[in-house]
Amino acid sequence: MNIFRLLGDLSHLLAIIVLLLKIWKTRSCAGISGKSQILFAIVYTSRYLDLVTTYISAYNTFMKLIFVVAAYATVYLMYIKFKATYDHNHDTFRMEFLVIPSLILALLINHELTVLEVLWTFSIYLESVAILPQLFLVSKTGEAESITSHYLFALGSYRGLYLLNWVYRYYAEDHYDLIAIVAGLVQTVLYCDFFYLYITKVLKGKKLQLPA
């Protein structure tokens, strides 16, 4: 474990908690893409199947359980409990355009052709684009609540911190995983324009408004 990965995991955990609190406290999921949340549930389900096969540490197991449970809880809140507040008119990104290519790519480019490894690779590819429906929703509505932008900032920072973790592990532990690194780069780059808007606007107390 290193400080970059620890901060990354905590940033990820913070994002998930902020989102759950936003939906629970405001009893509304307006401005949140349910499709991205479904994609995250798929990502963690396909990545954390090794929960039943390999034990790495209490921390690893605990965090994986939190991420999976929180993903499904968010989907439940959005599509069942607070269904009436779900913005399905704007949340129109086609998930299959992300899931199917990720699955095909995972079958073509992976480290070994086993079920667990292909599912892990699929989860890595899918996670790198899973935020697209959310960013698409924000661009369609042209704005985002500040709590939603804090959620996105924490979520985008987590994988950016993981990039630093991989640099550290390359020098300190002399290994690297190109699949995770390339996907992590794509994932972090997708947040760049949002990061710019967040830092130039939200941190100055303005609302996150996308240029029309």
């Binding site: 090794d50 790495i56 690893n60 892990w120 290994h175």
Partner: peptide
């Protein structure tokens, strides 16, 4: 080789 990359990340 890839074998020595531990799958210990979240």
């Amino acid at each position: 080789s890839y074998k020595n990359v531990p799958k210990d990340e979240l």
